[in-house]
Design a protein around this nucleic acid. Structure first.
Lengths: 116, 116
DNA sequence: TCCTTATGTCGCAAACATACGTCACATTAT
DNA sequence: ATAATGTGACGTATGTTTGCGACATAAGGA
């Protein structure tokens, strides 16, 4: 997002793109799913469950944390990560609005000729 | 997506990540919105409406086309791009499923302490 | 107490991917 | 012929992915 021409787009577009970028790697998708499925807010267990090194997982976590999609609480030796559910719901609505806008087109027939 | 460890994740995770990647640039978000708003399936007009060069826009279009999110029909000199609405609806459902899964967590309280 | 082990994190770096644009070219309309 | 359009080849700048090595901290023995 820190690209040259980024400023030329609207905040909504940039915001959506930012979150999409966070989800643009299967590891991060997997991390979110893991955090959603586990009742415990695991920390190093995430690295253990993924086929990636501790360092790599840590960086993916950092990226998600930078967007505030997840939170991390220090609990003694370990860190307890968990989803920021309210933010996720908000993001969900943004995506929904986008997709509804995108799929409500009637200009071009479904999947066939582009008979503009 | 063509990264080393990509194969280790599920198809769903990879598919979601792939689409998210397509939406991870504001220019591509803008292009989809443009195609959705215009009744005509514009071609070079897209480049004219964005603060990017023709070539750059072309590459973004290629990326979207590679995922089949948009279609391009040659009409004489110009190419007529339009959204692949059915696919978008399908993608929409995938995202919905993901977000519902992600936001249904009750493990960690909303936005406060991670009291696992 | 000291040693070991586990954990989260930082620094660094190689491999790879993306963004962006200038040039070039073919096609078609005027 | 001229102009406009889509697209291809190529290059530079920038960003991402991935993990190895290193470090500090804290817990658990011996």
């Amino acid at each position: 997002m820190t690209y040259a021409k980024t400023a030329a787009f609207t905040d909504e577009q940039q915001q959506l793109a930012r979150v999409a970028k966070a989800l643009s790697h299967p590891a991060r998708v997997a991390i979110i799913q893991l955090l959603a499925s586990k009742q415990t807010c695991i920390s190093g267990d995430i690295a253990a469950e993924l086929p990636l090194s501790r360092t790599t997982v840590f960086q993916h976590l950092q990226e998600l944390k930078a967007l505030d999609l997840i939170r991390g609480e220090i609990e003694g030796v370990t860190v307890c990560y968990c989803l920021n559910t309210p933010l996720l719901q908000q993001v969900y609505q943004q995506f929904t609005a986008f997709f509804i806008e995108a799929t409500s087109t009637t200009a071009c027939g479904p999947a066939d000729a582009c008979a503009c």
